[in-house]
């Protein structure tokens, strides 16, 4: 069942062998790309720092547990772990915020626990929906988005529910 083990090696093999066959300067290209990657890391660093600190305060003040306790009577019967609620709430709005919450879930619930694995799947199968909608429509001056938001949110909701369900069924 563990496809993950084969994904990276086979992708690497395919990409590098293909480039070698085309006689591309493989090493040089790698350095170019990695340099861009460093740029991207520096760009997101301040917002990661801001949100990890905020989430850390949210956790240690006890407010996070209080909020989880509030939604727990609604979510628990549905089979949705209430610990995942903050992630589900923040994911469509802020990528850095979601990453900060994900890290907090790993630390508080355990990375390989059911909640830790379901959170990983949730993070991986959804997007920063509102950010994408704002940037795509805003760039061409479209203000009436019609059914975009309900469709995108339905997709997110499906991804989140399926993350819990698939982790339960397949064991992640």
């Amino acid at each position: 069942m563990n496809i993950g083990v084969y994904v990276i090696p086979s992708a690497l093999l395919l990409i590098i062998a293909n480039a070698m066959l085309k006689r591309l300067p493989v090493f040089e290209l790698f350095l170019q790309g990695a340099r861009q990657g460093i740029g991207a890391v520096f760009k997101i660093m301040p917002s990661i720092l801001a949100l990890v600190c905020a989430v850390s305060m949210l956790r240690s003040s006890g407010l996070l547990d209080f909020l989880i306790g509030l939604v727990s009577p609604i979510l628990q019967p549905l089979g949705f772990p209430p610990e995942l609620f903050p992630l589900a709430l923040l994911r469509p709005v802020s990528g850095s915020g979601a990453l900060a919450v994900l890290d907090d879930i790993y630390k508080s619930c355990g990375v390989d626990s059911f909640i830790g694995r379901a959170a990983s799947v949730m993070m991986g199968s959804t997007e920063t929906t509102f950010y994408a909608i704002a940037i795509y429509y805003g760039s061409v001056g479209i203000s009436k988005t019609r059914h975009t938001v309900p469709c995108a949110l339905a997709a997110d909701f499906t991804g989140m529910a399926m993350a819990v369900l698939s982790t339960r069924l397949l064991g992640g």
């Binding site: 480039a19 790309g33 990695a34």
Partner: peptide, 8 residues
């Protein structure tokens, strides 16, 4: 990964 993807 962005290095590898540049090659891809």
């Amino acid at each position: 990964w962005s290095g590898i993807m540049r090659i891809a």
